[in-house]
Nucleic acid binder design. Structure first.
Lengths: 89, 89
DNA sequence: TCGTTATTTAGATAGTTATCTAAATATTTA
DNA sequence: TAAATATTTAGATAACTATCTAAATAACGA
């Protein structure tokens, strides 16, 4: 849970997730959408990977990143559990 | 969204939310559950308040903190939107 | 009003993080 | 094999954060 919330606590990383929601992308394609150096984006991708929010597979010269919704579902449940149990007898 | 994810990115604050899920508590009652100084807990409560995850109302000598699920619902939706739109045509 | 209890504010510090540039690794193509 | 492209790793730095102690504010009760 720590790695997950840490990963989500950054607007760049949240935007990356939203980009990958629509389609898989290479590191370079992701990097193109930001005014941030490629090494910095690589670092963000690493943090998202550690949280298991994304996975990357090399395809030749590129690495193809895709979103992993399993952990997001766990996170959504974390919220729903708090919401549902609140003020319940 | 920034304040929300920042607030959630700390195990102490997440535990406070889970405590308030069951019942309203004073700052002192919250503080008793942690090996952390009262000023530090007060600081955590402030961050949760800024994110509108909790609210505090003075009741005489005490301040009674309660959870606010509205923002949690917005957060849950943020996750569900990503989950549901992924891999959709 | 004075002392006690509850909580916050102020100021300091150690640890963490986002970012950068430079260099390294991996793959393809000529 | 050498050059070009894609990505990561290393090392440095400025900004942020969690924590502490000491002091301030607020409310109660004798």
């Amino acid at each position: 849970m720590n790695a997950l919330f840490k990963a989500l606590n950054d607007p760049t990383r949240r935007k990356i997730l939203q980009m990958l929601r629509d389609q898989d992308l290479s590191a370079g394609e992701i990097s193109d959408q930001f005014d941030i150096s490629k090494p910095s984006i690589s670092h963000h991708l690493d943090i998202l990977k550690r949280a298991q929010l994304i996975s990357g597979e090399r395809e030749g010269q590129f690495i193809r990143y895709s979103i992993n919704t399993t952990v997001l579902e766990e996170a959504a449940n974390w919220f729903l559990e708090i919401i549902n149990q609140s003020s319940d007898p």
